[in-house]
Design a protein around this nucleic acid. Structure first.
Lengths: 205, 205
DNA sequence: ATGGTTCTTTCGACCCGTCGGTTGACAATA
DNA sequence: TATTGTCAACCGACGGGTCGAAAGAACCAT
């Protein structure tokens, strides 16, 4: 009873009622990039917020100005990965020639992973750290992504550009062919273009 | 000073001075299998020893009769994975026909991963949890494994069974093609044999 | 210019739950 | 009585998350 001033709205982190500044956005992007590297090398659980902060020249507490909890960091990494992949791939849907279309998809996927290995290493390997809701969201977008490949594969089979078979299985296999690169690709030895060409040549007749 | 009874040699865990019994070995194999499942679903760091023990109907402390520390469990998972893969693959080295040889390797790799997805999911994704020395050991054996593929690819290129290109790059790509299956393969929907055939048909002319 | 005021960003100190790892004792079997 | 296997209880470290405060710039009134 007595004076109950009603909880003054929590003032944790950035105030939510106004637009985030450009600098804030840029800083957050930096943080996400660094988090991807840390989570890749140490794993999500073992990669502490101290690690992320240290790599940025900050203290752990400062991160909570940009993020509410650790898993937000992971979600942001996933968001960036699936967003960049999805937007790029859906601009390729207009290509009509089956051979060209499949080749474009394969090239896209190969270059994507090779360009930002940390981002996709986390995306592929650290899914256990995601929260349930985030996982479902990612799953939906990933299915959209897969669909583009399945459609392209079906067209390619009809055009005898690749041998016949279950399109879903083939699509997943091709995605593996290209995605696996984050495990072995070394930019000092391997050329991204050569890799993309090799992938295309390997499956396209 | 005074009476120093000299630490009576610690008698923690199994006594090392005698042969492990058959039951002991079998039990340990069970533990490793369960650990692989736990580490796959939760990740190595997040997968607690309590989880592993509970899945076995044991208490955490009991695990320390079979293992000295948590990372031993992870090492055992890795050991089993690389051992089974390596021994199988090196029996295939005698096949002389390039097409047959490459096909056999691809089939072997595809079936291997599909048969025990948890084992290889941990092997591929949880390397960050390994200790330095163990990591080096795994790396050596993995290079031996890769060599088999590189040799087979070189022969296949000479025989025009696959298009030309950097053998190491192609070998890694093929390994990705097959290994990726642990991320999407669903035994209730997909057939291991069909998958192996698809992989072969996809790259072999 | 100058001293106040506010807003953004950073930090040190602290709390607290979880988990790896330890210990000593207790059955069961032989 | 020795060996094998199990357990409840405990401890210490580490890491996520909280809190209050302070440094610095920008803005504003005199």
């Amino acid at each position: 009873m007595s004076t109950a001033p009603a909880d003054p709205p929590r003032k944790r982190g950035r105030p939510r009622h106004i637009e985030p500044s450009q600098e804030y956005r840029a800083r957050l992007e930096d943080i996400v990039s660094v988090a991807a590297v840390v989570f890749r090398t140490n794993g999500y659980e073992a990669g502490s917020l101290d690690d992320v902060a240290a790599a940025l020249g900050l203290r752990k507490a400062s991160l909570y100005y940009y993020v509410k909890k650790k898993s937000d960091l992971l979600r942001l990494v996933f968001d960036r990965a699936i967003t960049v992949a999805l937007t790029e791939v859906e601009t390729l849907a207009h290509i009509t020639d089956p051979r060209e279309r499949l080749a474009a998809l394969i090239r896209h996927q190969a270059l994507l992973v090779v360009r930002d290995p940390s981002l996709f290493a986390v995306f592929f390997d650290q899914r256990a750290g995601l929260e349930k809701a985030d996982l479902a969201d990612i799953g939906r977008k990933e299915r959209r992504y897969l669909r583009q490949f399945v459609l392209a594969v079906e067209a390619a089979i009809d055009a005898k550009v690749i041998p016949p078979g279950d399109p879903r299985m083939i699509a997943n296999s091709i995605i593996g062919l290209t995605s696996w690169s984050y495990k072995w690709f070394d930019p000092r030895r391997d050329s991204p273009e050569a890799f993309a060409d090799t992938c295309c040549a390997l499956v396209i007749r």
